[in-house]
Write a protein that binds this DNA or RNA. Structure first.
Lengths: 231, 231
DNA sequence: CGAGGTTTTGAGCGAATTCAATTCCGGTGG
DNA sequence: CCACCGGAATTGAATTCGCTCAAAACCTCG
């Protein structure tokens, strides 16, 4: 744990379009702790009281619900730069668990720091507002996929969106989700995900090597989306 | 259109836990217009630029996505007291359409009024934050239903939640959604929804009369939820 | 090289959709 | 007041899609 350099991550990245004065940053960022965690780490658990929020500096994290009773459902994937876990400001219990899919490096912002930011920095609240608005859109997107598409459409849609999310610049983009996890995100069983992806690899729609994939025939993937959803 | 009485609705209900001083309310609420609209009215349309937010004083509204190309998906149902449509503060285009399922009465808050509230009333932003946090939870709930349950489970879950949302006090709760719309919410086809509900009516799990339903065997509905999702 | 987990593949089954037809219901006009 | 119309709900039969169960092929790591 070290608090140095956090001015470039936690507070800064949160207050994207809010202007926080230097002194405040200086005073607050000592309370933010930066740290690493290996893949598989559970940052927090559904049903427990929230004690901090995080900024994800590097890696991928899944937010998953219903780990307990039924079948788990991944509700969101977080990539570098995202701020998450701030529901402590409004809720007693976490509504999902956060689990690292890769080694991660993040900054931890304890609840009281959040509270300070919220009351003392109007820019913070506004930034938070924008984030949640975007999060809401993402989850709505997911709901639409789950509600209106069948297996192939969901998978094609995911691949295309995942590429976008990771920037088209990278050719081989990391895919740190197992087939099972893809299923938990897309509401499908492992076998279904595997069957479709295996076939698409045979048909050269994309390649896969060591946890990374490369899309080859984006048009055919997009074509799947056309055919898939009913008229 | 009348602006009277809006201090009791729009601004007040938004600033639930923010304290707005009387003078400000007085000054602002003249810009909020109250009005009625019949069932079927489209308050705003997906893809158009947002020009106002609304407070729903009476009635039920559906937020629906993808009206255009594929199959439509209802992403949220709004009931009396809810504040919605404020994405204009952050986004260029509406991400879903808002359509009245019943006759509605609502207050309209034009964009510039929202802007004023946001900059001049810290309580407003905080309240908005809480709303969106709750909205996010609701949509996540929906995603979980869609991703992990099969037909019967989704319908049972909906009935139970709908009752809760309308308050257990009312015995005959209004169900202003057609079977088709229920399908668009739950990711099912009309026939599937109809089959399940018709059977449950035969088996006296609930009754239906003139657009209203009454749950009779909540336990058996809950039992469906247990059996439904895989272990 | 071997162990354990993940991915892939196959066969059979069950669930939900599609297509098609019938019944129900509210509202309208005679 | 009653017959009729049109949209919504219901029901049936056939089909497709995704799931389950089970086994084989693959890695990856020790």
């Amino acid at each position: 744990m070290q608090s140095s350099d956090c001015e470039n991550c936690a507070i800064r990245s949160v207050a994207l379009f809010g202007e926080i004065d230097e002194a405040t940053v200086e005073r607050l960022h000592h309370q933010a702790q930066q740290f690493d965690a290996p893949a598989g780490t559970e940052l927090y658990t559904e049903g427990t009281p929230p004690d901090a929020a995080f900024t994800l500096r590097e890696g991928v994290i899944k937010l998953v619900r219903g780990d307990g009773n039924g079948r788990p459902q991944i509700v969101r994937l977080l990539v570098r730069g995202e701020f998450f876990g701030a529901e402590g400001l409004f809720e007693e219990l976490r509504h999902h668990s956060a689990i690292a899919l890769t080694p991660v490096v993040l900054c931890r912002l304890p609840n009281d720091l959040l509270q300070q930011l919220q009351t003392e920095e109007p820019g913070f609240t506004t930034a938070l507002l924008g984030r949640w608005r975007r999060a809401l859109n993402e989850v709505e997107d997911l709901a639409v996929e789950l509600g209106t598409r069948k297996a192939e459409g969901r998978i094609a849609s995911f691949l295309l969106h995942w590429e976008t999310k990771n920037g088209h610049a990278i050719e081989w983009l990391p895919l740190p989700l197992s087939r099972t996890e893809l299923g938990e995100l897309l509401g499908l069983r492992v076998e279904t995900v595997s069957r479709v992806m295996a076939r698409w690899k045979r048909e050269k729609l994309f390649e896969e090597r060591g946890g990374h994939i490369r899309l080859l025939e984006r048009d055919r993937l997009r074509a799947v989306l056309e055919t898939d959803d009913a008229a």
